Amino acid sequence: MSISFSKKAKIITASLLLAASLPALAAIAKLDNAKSKVTIVFKQMNVPVDAQFKKFSAAIDYNTAKPEASTATVDIDVASFDLGDPQYNAE
Rank of each mutant, 00 (worst) to 15 (best):
K66L: 13
K43Q: 11
T71G: 10
A20I: 02
K54A: 14
A79W: 00
P86Q: 10
S21T: 08
I28M: 07
N63M: 06
L16A: 04
F5T: 08
D61A: 12
F42W: 06
M1G: 14
D82T: 09
K37A: 07
E91P: 00
A14N: 07
I12V: 11
I12A: 10
A69L: 07
F56H: 08
K35M: 14
S80I: 04
I28V: 13
D85V: 04
A27L: 05
L16P: 01
S4A: 15
I60Q: 04
L31R: 15
T13Q: 02
I40V: 15
K8F: 14
A29H: 07
S2L: 08
L16Y: 10
F42I: 10
A19T: 11
K54T: 10
D50V: 06
K66F: 05
F81K: 03
D32N: 11
K66W: 02
S70I: 02
P86V: 14
S2E: 05
S36T: 06
V47T: 11
D75L: 09
L18E: 08
D50E: 00
A9I: 00
D77G: 11
A79K: 09
F56E: 14
E91I: 04
I28W: 02
L31V: 14
I11G: 06
S2A: 03
N63C: 14
E68I: 03
A9D: 11
Q52L: 04
L22A: 13
L17A: 04
P23N: 15
M1R: 13
M45Y: 14
V38Y: 08
I28D: 14
F81V: 01
K35Y: 08
M45P: 00
A9H: 03
A14Q: 14
I3G: 00
K55N: 12
N46H: 05
K10C: 12
T64P: 09
A19D: 13
P48V: 02
S70F: 01
A27V: 04
D77F: 06
M45A: 15
D61E: 09
Y88G: 15
D32C: 01
D82A: 03
A19C: 15
T13A: 06
A59W: 07
P48F: 02
Q52H: 09
V38T: 08
L17N: 08
S57F: 04
D61F: 05
I12G: 09
